[in-house]
Design a binder for these strands. Structure first.
Length: 601
RNA sequence: GCCGAUGUGGCUCAGGGGUAGAGCAAUUCACUCGUAAUGAAUAGGUCGUGAGUUCGAUUCUCACCAUCGGCUCCA
């Protein structure tokens, strides 16, 4: 029997794919009336979708695992065979597997239709698989979830069972332990424990309260971003949080993004005379800043000499996400984005796009997330043209342009069909949270539509008026989401420069409290964020608490320090540093802030 | 929006058809303390909200709200 080598991606996939089949076989044994959908290997394991009466309970999962154990012991060879389309279809109809029949019907005419058989269980499947069910060593069914057939919400919701498998028990345990460890960093847990944010039932979903600590971190990040953008030639705008529907009709939001907007006023209302309400009187909270910044562009006649024109705004956005979507600080209904739009000539497009990438990269490096991201080129879905503005030719052309820039920069990226914005393709910088779920952190988009739609023009050298290209971009993404990922990255112990509380002074006894406040004020006057723990507690307890609250510097003050004008410095990262003159402590902290030192834990 | 789980003092959790308990946190007092929890006392909850069943509901039923995991959507 072959030893499975998990360094070999093919073997790993085969192994987990086969685990999924063994699970399906167990389910069919226990509940023969259950219908099979699909069951692939995924990044950290596998799943199988079933059409099953009711739902699977925890106890059911245990039963399934027990049955899987039997199937492993039975050492079934896993055999592949092929059938012509009509026979394959006939067999699936006979086996009463409607989802498999549908899959076969949708296979291209020239497709080879293969099956895999292990014991009494046969499944339509392209493979690959391991050779024998007896090779399976360590597996665990992790959770049940609903999932739409073929990922379409109009279809029936199936029952999905997730699981994972490894070549041996130790690796499985190591994996499960790692997941448990990762979850301890969950920003949604840590962020609340550490007092960054809270939520309140009667405010509503996706609307967190940023508490002073969280608000301070956000403010620090915002100042940092705004200063850097100013250095890079951005002009600040401040635009309204809402506008009449007229604006969104020009941008297309009214037609393509209406479900995502909070409307003020009822578009279906009728007047006393029975007249439909004038839609101009319907306002909407802004889901994006673009149409507002275009109005800033339109405020003057533009010349090619004005371009590129770079607008930036720390922008509060409102999106009416459906109720099941909200997650901690990652998905919200109101959030703050480092928004920006660049208007440029076609010749400037490549250079400006690169500058946006450079800015994003600078930001990610500054906060320490640069090594954790991946790139995605998000294209339109040519089979779903109604979702988008513009012609197929325009889409293909602008996507070619974007791909050209990405390739010129030598970036490694995946291509994702159907992930574009309705007005243009996106370059997305993706990141995973502690649950392994991927989200967009930063996005840079090329828009070839809205310049025309809003009548944005510039007079070129030749005296002809032309439409500028627009780049939508964010420099650090959505601040709340970025904060969430930073909390997870640093397990709550944020780098000194962005920490809400940079140092805490710990007086040994109440004799030292007055002096502690004086020193606090001295440090504060240098721009450091410092608090005093003046509670009537022992020093050990104060240290323990500061440590648990992830304060980077603990400054102990007793008789000796008061007499000598020093502070006994304890760094969260480096431990005890001994007594230092207050001036030296200030210099050390300011230097660490200036250099934006990062300690990962 | 859909599938599933969950909802008990600020936090972590126990309990259970006869109107609730622990630890931490908070407050007060004593100790005046040297690098990860000093001791004692006090206060704090209409058990997410609303309806129903019942003599009686926090406990059972239903609806709604919120939180968590997934699907769909998305920064």
């Amino acid at each position: 029997m072959n030893m499975i080598d998990f360094n070999d991606e093919f073997q790993k996939l085969s192994y987990r794919h086969s685990t999924s089949h063994i699970m399906a076989q167990a389910v069919k044994r226990l509940w023969p009336e259950t219908k099979l959908a699909i069951g692939p290997a995924i990044e950290d394991g596998f799943y199988y979708d079933f059409d099953h009466e009711g739902t699977f309970t925890k106890e059911d999962l245990e039963k399934i695992e027990a049955e899987m154990k039997k199937i492993v012991k039975e050492h079934f060879p896993i055999e592949r065979f092929e059938l012509p389309r009509d026979e394959a279809r006939k067999q699936m109809v006979e086996m009463n597997e409607p989802y498999k029949v549908e899959l076969i019907d949708d296979l291209p005419a020239d497709a080879v239709i293969s099956f895999y058989r292990q014991g009494e269980f046969t499944d339509l499947c392209a493979g690959p698989h391991i050779e024998n069910t007896g090779e399976l060593r360590a597996y665990k069914l992790t959770q049940v979830a609903g999932a739409y057939w073929r990922g379409n919400e109009k279809n029936k919701m199936l029952q999905r069972i997730y699981g994972t498998s490894f070549p041996d028990k130790d690796q499985l345990k190591a994996y499960l332990d790692r997941i448990e460890e990762a979850k301890k960093r969950d920003h949604n847990k840590l962020g609340r424990e550490l007092g960054y944010f809270t939520t309140v039932d009667y405010i509503g979903q996706g609307l967190p309260i940023m508490l002073p600590r969280g608000a301070k971190v956000l403010q620090t990040l915002i100042r940092f971003v705004e200063d850097e953008e100013e250095r890079r030639g951005y002009l600040l705008t401040k635009t309204p949080f809402m506008a009449k529907s007229d604006l969104y009709k020009i941008s297309g939001h009214w037609y393509h993004y209406r479900d995502g907007m909070f409307l003020l006023g009822d578009p279906n209302a009728v007047s006393k005379e029975g007249q439909p309400v004038n839609e101009s009187e319907i306002y909407a909270l802004r889901p994006m800043t673009c149409p507002f910044q275009y109005q800033a562009y339109l405020a003057e006649n533009r010349s090619y000499r004005d371009l590129p024109l770079r607008y930036a705004e720390t922008s509060t956005l409102f999106r009416n996400e459906s109720s099941g979507e909200m997650h901690g600080l990652i998905r919200l209904r109101q959030f703050t984005i480092s928004e920006g739009h660049l208007m440029c000539t076609p010749e400037q497009l490549t250079e400006e796009f690169k500058r946006c990438l450079d800015l994003a990269s600078f930001m990610l490096d500054a906060v320490g997330l640069n090594d954790d991201v991946s790139y995605r080129f998000s294209k339109w879905d040519p089979n779903n043209k109604d979702k988008y503005v513009g012609s197929a030719e325009e889409w293909e052309a602008v996507q070619d342009t974007m791909r050209g820039i990405l390739d010129e920069l030598g970036l490694t990226y995946t291509e994702a069909e159907g992930e574009a914005a309705f007005y243009g393709p996106k370059f997305d910088i993706q990141i995973k949270n502690v649950w392994g779920k991927e989200d967009t952190l930063i996005t840079i988009q090329i828009d070839f539509q809205q310049g025309k739609q809003f009548g944005m023009e510039y007079t070129d050298r030749d005296g002809i008026k032309k439409n500028p290209y627009v780049i939508h971009r964010t420099s650090i993404g959505c601040y709340e989401r970025t904060l969430a990922l930073l909390i997870e990255k640093y397990a709550g112990a944020l780098p000194l420069w962005m920490a809400a509380e940079q140092a805490r002074i710990l007086p040994i006894s109440d004799k030292h409290v007055d002096q502690a406040f004086a020193v606090r004020d001295q440090l504060r006057s240098q721009g450091l964020r410092v608090e005093v723990d003046d509670r009537d507690e022992k020093i050990g307890k104060k240290i323990r608490q500061a440590q648990m609250e992830k304060v980077q510097y603990m400054l102990v003050m007793g008789d000796k320090e008061v007499d000598e004008g020093t502070l006994a410095v304890r760094s969260r990262h480096d431990g005890e540093l001994g007594a230092l003159p207050i001036e030296d402590v200030i210099a050390r902290l300011l230097d660490e802030v200036k250099r934006r030192v990062k300690h990962f834990s």
